[in-house]
Design a binder for these strands. Sequence first.
DNA 1: CCGATGATGAATTGGACC
DNA 2: GGTCCAATTCATCATCGG
Length: 590
Amino acid sequence: MTKDPSIEDIDDIDWTSEDEREIEDIPAVQAAAAKIEASSSSVDPCSKLIQHFVGMGFSRELVEKAIEQNGEDSESILETLLTLSVLETSPSEQEQPYSSCPQEEPCVNGYDSSSGYDENILDDFSDGGSWSDDDVENVVSLSPKERTLLSLTKMGYLAEEASMAMERCGPEATIEELTDFMCAAQMARSEATYWEEEDIKPKIKNLSGENGKQKRKMYAYDMYRKKKQKGIFNEDVETIRLPKPMVGFGVPTEICPEFQGRTLPEQAIGPPYFYYENVALAPKGVWDTISRFLYDVEPEFVDSKYFCAAARKRGYIHNLPVENRFPLLPIPPRTINEALPLTKKWWPSWDTRTKLNCLQTAIGSARLTDRIRKSVEAYEGEPPLRIQKYVLDECRKWNLVWVGRNKVAPLEPDEFEMLLGFPKNHTRGGGISRTDRYKSLGNSFQVDTVAYHLSVLKDLFPNGMNVLSLFSGIGGAEVALHRLGIRLKTVVSVEKSEVNRNIVRSWWEQTNQTGTLIDFDDVQQLNGDRIEQLIDSVGGFDLVIGGSPCNNLAGSNRVSRDGLEGKESALFYDYIRILDLVKCIMSRYR
DNA sequence: CCGATGATGAATTGGACC
DNA sequence: GGTCCAATTCATCATCGG
């Protein structure tokens, strides 16, 4: 192995300390909310108005001042309050005065997976949440605009920012549209080379116009900027585009031009390293949201057809270096022909497939393969184009391969394993049914693809790694690291399915691991205390890796493709919750 | 109860064409 | 621009037989 210049100084890994940003991002409104005094029993006509705004989280002094200036026009009072509260938190002591994305909420507050997003916030309010009971009735009496504003400030946005966004996006805008806008605004601001505290407003105003002439690489920023240029009022919000070809920051086989490194957003830089995965073809806007919550890191979209004989279009968001990657050896067969040599003999010339489609959780039925056999059998030589098209369409849809004269069949579970880069029989036996094997494999990583991305860790951690593996499934991440020759010191694995946990456990025991495997069955068990305790005992995590459930995102789901807020896919918010906790706790240790 | 099976489209994107 | 066509997709559910 060639000596890489970066190997020598492992201690110099450029982790920027995060110590500075502990609690500075608490918006003024929240700070004010913390010191709400008991409501006065006074009966003067202003008191109701005062209570009204105090209920929103503004301090009493501020409210009185605002009323003094504006009389009883609640609209203008609100404007004044917003301005005043911004002034109260002078940005002078803040390195990033306008940090606004929700994930920057200080970890002392922890994360509530059911909140932190959209209208769930409002539900939290009616439950009391972190607000005192006295506020509840005030909150209920708020106008829709004020409720929205309150939601946003509770999410961690500055009141002025939220107000600005509401102004721009119009009265009908949803919370998501508003957070989108503010995130875009934050990105635009982060472009500014210098930050002058006295011209906050001009900078914000500048958002709608053109900003910054400096040339940069083609990143998400540009897409957000394009979105803004097209006009924020447009219904169609521009989403993150999938690259074509789908090779991410590079694959070993294809020559990938025009990519020369990337610069990560400051907040994305570890420790720990993190690696998040999900389906590339998610409903509109999903990847924008995911990216936003993962520190605005641009997703790396890769199709595993560049690594094996089956397609697998996935998005990966990670903060790993992208230089000097290397593939797992041996290089797996790259065509159907090479991967399944026995099919070659029966493969008709008019079936031009060289790659399989995505390996999914369900397989084609026997009845279907029978229909196909009959329709092809009816002809001596080549069937007519109409039949060819029918057969090919079904073969593509169900990933069928030719296993005999006029006979197609779905792939076997061990062929799934091989194509996905797992050892043979990885999911076999030990009490797992055939149906469950398909399901577990269909939901897994393609090991070669993930390993290629993780390969940069080998030189960074010559003594091994501590890994926090969320939604582990059948252990794709663990297998990838192991096959890279990276020692696994401690793996904390979270996986709901018992059969999957058994698979990983028995793999662990069969591969002579020298480390420790700790598993949990529920992400909810990983609260702040538990994570702190784990970090204490293992000495910190080097990598947080996982792909959260895709069932509510995947195209094959005809029943509940509900997006990121779907029942299972919403567990994404547990990923970021846990990642954020790890990040915060680790930063304290340094 | 468990495991296997078969029926069940829509969303999204890109390209060709007008 | 708009419109059509083609391709693709880490799935869910009721049901049936053991």
